[in-house]
Nucleic acid binder design. Sequence first.
RNA 1: GCCGGUGUGAUGGAAUUGGUAGACGUAGCGGAUUCAAAAUCCGCCGGGCUAAUCUCCCGUGUGGGUUCGAGUCCCACCACCGGCACCA
Length: 806
Amino acid sequence: MKYDFAAIEPKWQKRWEEAKVYAAADHSDKPKFYGLVEFPYPSGQGLHVGHPRPYTAMDIVTRKKRMDGYNVLFPMGFDAFGLPTENYAIKNHIHPAKVTKDNIKNFTSQLKMLGFGFDWDRVVDTTDPSYYKWTQWIFLQLYKKGLAYKATMPVNWCTSCKCVLANEEVVEGVCERCGAPVVRKEKSQWMLRITQYAQRLIDDLDELDFIERVKIQQRNWIGRSTGAEVTFKSTAGDDIVVFTTRPDTLFGATYMVLSPEHELVKSWLEAGKLHNADEVAAYQKAAASKSDLERTELNKEKTGVCLDGVRGVNPVNGREIPIFISDYVLSTYGTGAIMAVPAHDDRDWEFAKKFGCEIIEVVSGGEDVQKAAFTAKDETGVLVNSDFLNGLTVKDAIPAVTKWLEEQGIGEAKVNYKLRDWVFSRQRYWGEPIPMVYCGKCGWQPLPEDQLPLLLPEVESYEPTDDGESPLSKMTEWVKTTCPRCGGEARRETDTMPQWAGSSWYFLRYMDPHNDTALASKEALDYWSPVDWYNGGMEHTTLHLLYSRFWHKFLYDIGVAPTKEPYQKRTSHGMILGEGGEKMSKSRGNVVNPNDIVAAYGADTLRLYTMFIGDFEQAAVWSDNAVKGCKRFLDKVWNLAESCADSLEHTKANEALLHKTIKKVADDIEAMKFNTAIAAMMTLVGDFQKNGCSKGDMRTLVTLLSPFAPHVAEELWEMLGGAGFVCQQPWPAYDERKTAADTVQMAVQVNGKVRSNIVVPADADNDAIIAAAQADPKVQKFTEGMALARTVVVKGRLVNLIVKPQ
RNA sequence: GCCGGUGUGAUGGAAUUGGUAGACGUAGCGGAUUCAAAAUCCGCCGGGCUAAUCUCCCGUGUGGGUUCGAGUCCCACCACCGGCACCA
C-alpha cells in the first residue's frame, strides 16, 4: 500500500467529527486546560499560510495535553465585523452579512481540512446577534459605571476610510489598515476610560507568564512616568498647572510653554490680554491643521510664539518668566503645559537656543549647559543655584522638593501615563450598533437591557458619508426612537463599535457559547477561567491584548469574570515570509495558499513543515523545496510501519534512543521548540531504518507523531493494530534509566583543545576517566614531558587535562 | 533618539544554557537500483594544508576581555528587523 494522504485525511476528519473526540466536557474530574489561538478575520481570500503556524502549534500543545489526561478546551471562532467585508460588500452590492456567512463557511472547511482539533460545537461569530447582544451588554455596563462617556475632542481621522481611529490604529501618522494619511478632526465620540486601569494593567503583568517582550511593549505603551504637578501663577492672576518629572530642577525654569490648544490661551485672547493676538491665533490655526504625519516629520525644528502681555511666575523664587505656545507641548498629555528647564532637558534646550531664552544650570556634574543639556537623573548630578536644595543629589532632591511643594500647597506628586482613553466610535456600517439613545430633554440614555440585541438595520447603501457620519444616520426610521426615560422623541446613536469590541471578550463566550441569559454561566466561567495558554501575534500586543485585558478587568470588577486577568500565559509566533524573505502579499505575488500544499502533499506534511521551518518565535522564510523533506519523512514512517517486525516488544538496539525521544518531544512541545522535536523523531526513524524496528517501536513513534501529523498517525495506529484513536492514547511513558547507554564517548582535551575521544563505562568515576584519558596514545603526544596541573571532568561529555612544562 | 530582537556552512536552522560547533532538513556531488526517468537506498558535503590522510591550523558579524574551556558571559562597535517616538 502507498501513503495515500488524499484518502486518509478526509477519512479521519470524518471519524473524529462523528466521535466528537475534540469536544470539551463541561464537567470533568480531569484537570482543565484552556488553550487559545486568535480567531481569524474571515476575509474573502481565505486562509493563507500565516494561519496554520500558530494554529498547528496550539493544536499540538492541546493534543499533547489531552494525551496527558486533561479536559481540554480548544475553540475556534470568527472575528467577522470589519472594513474589508464592508468594502467588498459596497463594491459588489452584496450584504456584508451574506459575505461574512460565505467567508466563514470557506474558512471552516479550510480549517477542518488541516485537521485541527477544535471543538466545533463552540464556534462563535462576533457578527451574530446572539453574540453581539453581549458585546452591547458589556458596553452598557461600562456606561453605567462611568467608564463609557461621550466627548468632543480632536481625534484621528482616516481620510480614506472616512472613519475615526484609535491611537493604537495609527502607525507613523497613517492608517494602520489602508495607509492613508490621518488628520486631526474635532468629533463627538464615545470613549472608554482605559486610563483608569493603566496602573493595574502594568502591575498585574508581574503575575503573568507572558513572554518578556510582550510585557515590555505593553509597559512602554502605557508609559507610566512619575513626577509632580506644580502651580505657577500668571501675571494675569491665573493658575498655570504644569507636570514635570524633574521637580528638582524648578529653580532652573526660565520660561513656560503651553500647548497651542491650552484653554488659558483662549481665555487670554478673548480677554484681550495679548498684544500679539494675531500672531498667536495664526500659530494656533497652523498647529490645528497639521496632520499627525506632518507633526512627526517636522519634529526637528521647534516652532512657537512668545505671548506678549502675560508672564509666568516661578513659585520658588518669584521670578517672572516668559510664556510661549508651541506644538512640542501636547494638549493631550499631562496638563498641556510645562515649565521649561533648558539646562536639563534636550527639547527645552533646543527651544531656548532658538528663541534666546536664559539657560541656568541647577544640576552640576555635566558639561557646560550652554553647549548641551545635562539630563542625567541619577547620583551623578548635584543641585546648585537652588537655595534649599543645594548639595543634594538629583535622586534625593526630587522627594525633598516634592514634599516642600506639598507643604507650601503649590504642588503635589503625580503620576502620568501615555495611554489615552480608547476612542470607541466608528462611522461605519459593519459593526455592533452602540446601544445608546439621545433625547433632547434627558441627554444620552442607555438602551434598556431587555431591548438587546440592538440589531443592525438593513440599509440600501453602506457607503460612508463625506461629512463624517455613519451610514446608519441615513436610516431615518431606525434612528428615530423614543427616549427610554421620558418616552419623548429621541435619536439612536448611529456610530458603531470598533473591530476590537467583539474580540475583547470572545474567550469567555467559548466557555458557554449558547447561553442566552448571560454572556456565560457562572459555573462555566469559574470552571474554565483563566485561559491557560494564549498564542497570538505581536501586532496585537498594544491593541487586542491590551483592550481585552482591560475589559476582562472590568468584568472582574463587576463580578462577572472570576479572575483578575484573562490569560495566564501568552506566547507569540514569528511571521512566515515569502520565498524572497519579504512579507507575503498579493502585490508581490509570493502568497502561498495552504490548499495547494494540502493538494500536493497533504495536511500532515503542511503541518509538519510549518513547525519544522524554524524557531517558532522567529520569522521564517517559506521554501517549497523544504516541504518535500517533511513528506519524505512521513513516507519513511509509513514504509517502516508496513515492514516492521510483528513483536510488541521494543527492539533492544532502539530502546535508549526511543526513551530519550519520548522525553525530548514532550519537553520540546512544552517549550514550543517544535522544530527540534521533529528533528528528534527524524533521528529516531533513521535509527529504526538502520537497526530494524518492531510493531511496539512503531506504535510508540506513531503516538509521538500524532499531535504533529494526526491523520497519518491514526491510519498507522489502526494498521499497527492499536485500539481506539491514537489521539486518545496516553502519552508514552519514558524510563529515565533506559535513556542511558552502558558506555559513553567522551572528548579528551589537553589545555582546552580536543585531542582524542575515549569510550568509558557510563558509571566510571573521575579517577578512572582521567586514567583512561592519560592512557590514550594521541593524548600522550601532547602530555609527554609535561606535569599535570589540573583536571576538569564533565561527566558524559569531556575531560580536560591541564598540563604545564616540567 | 529610546526600547526590544537577530547575526552560525551554498541554504532553513541545531547546540544539553559555559563543555567535542554545524544535529535535523533542503540543495549539491558520487555510487547502487532502473532500458531510462521518478521514487528509494548508501556515501561525501565550513575553509586551509595535503597526492591522500591525521581531532595539524583557522572558523559562529567586528575588536578586546574573563575562563582549563566562549556561538553562549562581560566591554566597545557594525549591520539588519520590529516597536515607540517632541509623553515634559
